[in-house]
Computed example of a mutant assay.
Amino acid sequence: MKDKLKVAVVQDSSVPFDAEKTARKACHLIEEAAINGAELVVFPEAFLGTYPKGLTFDSPVGKRLPEGREDYLKYYNGAVEIGGSEISDIASVARENNIFVVMGIIEKGGSTLYCTVVFIDPEKGVVGKRRKLMPTGSERLVWGFGDGSTLDIVESELGAIGTVICWENYMPSLRAAMYGQGVEIYCAPTADDRDTWVSTMQHIAMEGRCFVLSSCQFLKRGDFEEDYRCTLSDNPEEVLMRGGSMIIGPLGEIISGPVYNENAIIYADIDSDTLVKSKLDFDPVGHYSRPDVLSVHVDKEEKKAVYY
């Protein structure tokens, strides 16, 4: 990892179902983070492509209604492709501002949507992606399942950067897969704004002896159009996601945040020496592991429905 590094976490909302406008908004936020000295910036889960909070897609058990299919069409049309113009524009701004971007997107993969995170290097452009392995609850209706082929961390000039998305962070084996690759900057884009998320992030930072950067949207009902069929509220001022973004050090200490109920970019200066010092008494895949008793097998092969 680079000796000293300033990092940023964005807490803001998408422009729901409008990828072009959201990309423009993201570009402005990236520029702001860079102006304030950040060399890496993390965005929330599904920022580019929309997190459809409170939408049911009219899919009760045993039935799918036509209105829900219309909602899915709108959702699909607002998603993005890795090689599309929105990602290209963000990569250009990253290059112009010399800042590494970790961006939560809804990715089109054929006719299936994936909750994905893309890694954008300022010099090389898109250098990796992570598809969410396990969508949570009803997310499984509208998002496909990732596989082990996107579990690689990204080795960059800033350090070893990895991403675990939202409730994947409660999967011990997946965390181990990140630790085993030597993750130094552990990014956790999320839609979880619960109080318990703070202790989860602190635990992971201390368990993995890594820096944890967690980013969540601050999202109101009024950020959606009036005809958005949200089951949670019709009040434009109702907060659907309150944020809670934060940056945690490798001994579980809160460096910045959590911030609630406002748009913000939070910053922290991090130091590679802290990583080394934290491992004096604990290294989860080194001197504090017992591979003779416990180990994790990771299958990194891409899984396809049809092989030719």
Rank of each mutant, 00 (worst) to 15 (best):
M1L: 00
M1C: 06
K2F: 06
S13Q: 03
S13H: 05
V15S: 03
D18K: 12
A26Q: 04
H28W: 15
I35T: 08
F43Y: 01
F43R: 01
E45S: 01
A46W: 02
L55F: 01
T56I: 12
P60S: 08
G62F: 09
E70H: 13
V80M: 00
G84L: 04
G84Q: 02
S85I: 15
S85A: 15
N98D: 15
F100H: 12
I105G: 02
I105E: 00
I106R: 09
K108P: 09
K108T: 10
T116L: 00
F119A: 05
D121T: 06
R130N: 09
L133C: 10
S138N: 11
S138D: 11
W143K: 05
G144F: 00
F145W: 14
G146I: 00
S149W: 07
D152M: 08
E157Q: 12
G159L: 00
I161H: 10
C166W: 04
I185P: 14
A188L: 13
P189L: 01
D193Q: 02
T200V: 02
E207S: 12
L213M: 06
S215R: 05
C216P: 06
K220Q: 11
K220W: 12
K220T: 04
K220A: 05
F224I: 03
Y228T: 03
R229C: 01
G243W: 05
S245E: 05
I248P: 12
I248V: 15
G249I: 15
G249Q: 15
G252D: 14
G252I: 15
I255F: 15
P258F: 01
Y260F: 09
S272K: 03
S278C: 02
F282V: 11
Y288F: 11
R290P: 07
R290E: 12
V293G: 07
L294E: 11
L294D: 09
V298C: 05
K300L: 14
E302P: 07
K304V: 13
Y307Q: 12
